[in-house]
């Protein structure tokens, strides 16, 4: 190993260490503050000591945190599952057939990225009210069931699908529906899983639409977090505890599936 390479490697390590600390520190600080004793909340010591769960107790006392986490999980899982299904069907259509209006319809999907949320939220709210879906988790899930990102990513993926497998299946006279589920899906399962994780995390962190739909009580955990941020001063200890709880499931998922998650997000960025 030449000194040049070694120098490069050391530089690389230094740079990455600095960046990692910068990125991870606020998250660490969040959990550290939440674990301090209530009187120590303003302390600047790097390690919280003595450790205390009082803040978490306060967080649980003020919000039905278990129920919030459960609700958020339901919303996240159902949203992701729905988005995967809808996206898969649409991507299959784009990738498997040529048909009139194909390009126009494709642009329709891309176009949704440019529509500001603020421009559509009020008509959607009114529609939800008319459908009787306000104050329900369904009202949070249904309007977001078509994920343009999901459609586009899956289409890219399906574009590279080996033709021979399909030809063979079609020769057998199987229907397109059959082909989709018995031939295509098993092969792209990793991509589906990656996309699914990405969608779950995005839905978990969703905030504005749930805030519009769920007014009575703080049904999802992001809203529960809000209830601690009042004008009469923030209650920092329990606030950090609730924030920590709000992020915890995602982080747990991350620790377990880190490689896949990163890959999923990064792939969404590569063309």
């Amino acid at each position: 190993m030449t000194t040049d390479t070694r120098l490069r490697r050391i530089t690389g390590h230094v740079v990455l260490t600095v960046l990692s600390i910068a990125c991870a520190f606020p998250i660490y600080w969040l959990y550290a503050t939440s674990l301090r004793a209530p009187g120590d909340v303003h302390s600047l010591t790097i390690l919280p000591w003595p450790l205390s769960t009082a803040n978490y107790a306060a967080a649980f006392a003020n919000n039905d945190v278990a129920r919030m986490l459960a609700n958020t999980a339901i919303v996240a899982l159902l949203s992701a599952a729905g988005q995967l299904l809808v996206g898969l069907l649409a991507a299959y259509a784009f990738a498997a057939w040529t048909f009139p209006l194909r390009r126009t319809l494709y642009l329709m999907f891309v176009g949704t990225w440019l529509v500001p949320f603020q421009a559509t939220m009020l008509p959607n709210y009114v529609l939800l009210a008319r459908l009787g879906l306000l104050e329900t988790l369904a009202g949070v899930i249904i309007p977001n069931l078509c994920s343009a990102l999901g459609v586009l990513l899956l289409r890219e993926h399906l574009a590279g699908f080996p033709k021979e497998l399909l030809d063979a299946a079609r020769m057998d006279g199987r229907s397109s529906w059959n082909i989709l589920w018995t031939v295509v899906v098993p092969v792209i399962r990793p991509a589906l899983a990656a996309l699914g994780i990405l969608l779950v995390i995005t839905a978990w962190n969703e905030y504005f639409w749930p805030a519009m739909v769920l007014q009575r009580g703080n049904a999802v955990v992001q809203l529960g977090l809000r209830s601690f941020m009042g004008t009469e001063g923030n209650d920092w200890g329990p606030l950090m505890a609730t924030a920590g709880l709000a992020c915890l499931p995602v982080f747990v998922l991350y620790l377990v599936l880190q490689r896949h998650i990163v890959q999923a997000f990064v792939r969404s960025g590569l063309k």
Binding site: Y125, A129, M212, R226
Partner: peptide, 23 residues
Amino acid sequence: QGNSANPATDTISSLQSQLTAGH
């Protein structure tokens, strides 16, 4: 309904949205 740190800021817009929706 609303996302402001101070819910008192959201009272009118919340009322308006609900009036619009009919409830």
